[in-house]
Design a protein around this nucleic acid. Structure first.
Lengths: 146, 146
DNA sequence: GCTCAATCCTTATGATTGTCAACTGTCCAT
DNA sequence: ATGGACAGTTGACAATCATAAGGATTGAGC
């Protein structure tokens, strides 16, 4: 099917090109992941726990957190258990008595503030870009995300 | 200190700006991860196993794979065990008899080829960019990676 | 040659993340 | 009211991660 092939060549990246771009993205991802894991570790948190703390600016149903984390609700049970034991989060009954809201404790809010500042400040990857480059990157990422 | 503030605004991202950029990057990361996990799943592999297969174009010491995966060597033992059971990889003695090289089997090489093509073709995130945008993104990523 | 530290891999243990299926309690539309 | 849909939990299990300890092998220095 030569016509189809032409279409692919014209509108889609070649395999080699896609591979190069993917490879770069994966390397950036790797660096960001380890940066984030490092920072989370400074606060005694796993990466997933840190993501959860950051996401809990407002109290949220456990189900909503599960969707944000792209995992099964059953995982959030254990995750919330551990955060509750750490004294960072508490389960609060919602208006709908089926749902339990996860809410930061005072200590949790304090840690979240420090963590947010540290994460924003300590990204070694984006720090190398100029303001204009950051703007361009931001737009490209928006395009990728639709 | 208005002068200092000016300098910061010019050279370094504000916290809000950094947060916005990080958030976008994390969302892209999330999408790429689930894309990759999906593709790996089509081949009956976990994401880590798929990454290992892709990395094993040439036979490599287990330690080298551990470094590539940013994990402890002890983890690679179990990883290699499972890939060996699947018939995709075999342990080969190296010149230095302490090291064991991981080497794709014939079946492993066959799967690696399909997997590589599928990964390059199936990236839903980069597919939305034009050729020029992909070029720009590639350069920005290189800058971030130095 | 011999010793000894270093290196590679394995084993064992334990915490965390992840899926799935079954279960309890609650809501809501019929 | 009753039944289906939904939120969260539980239990079982696989996979991913770190750490520590141990066996085999290497290579450097004496």
């Amino acid at each position: 099917m030569p016509a189809n092939t032409m279409t692919l060549v014209t509108h889609a990246p070649s395999l080699a090109e896609a591979h190069g771009l993917s490879a770069r993205l994966f390397r950036v991802i790797d660096r960001m992941r380890s940066d984030f894991a490092e920072i989370a570790g400074e606060f005694g948190l796993t990466p997933l726990q840190a993501r959860s703390i950051l996401q809990l600016e407002e109290p949220q149903p456990m189900r909503a957190l599960a969707e944000y984390l792209s995992c099964e609700p059953s995982n959030v049970t254990g995750l919330a258990d551990r955060l509750e034991v750490s004294g960072l989060v508490e389960r609060v009954a919602g208006a709908d008595r089926r749902v339990k809201l996860l809410q930061l404790t005072a200590e949790g809010r304090r840690l979240r503030n420090q963590l947010a500042e540290r994460v924003a400040a300590g990204s070694t990857v984006t720090a190398k870009l100029s303001a204009a480059e950051r703007r361009t990157l931001s737009q490209l990422l928006d395009t990728m995300l639709d």
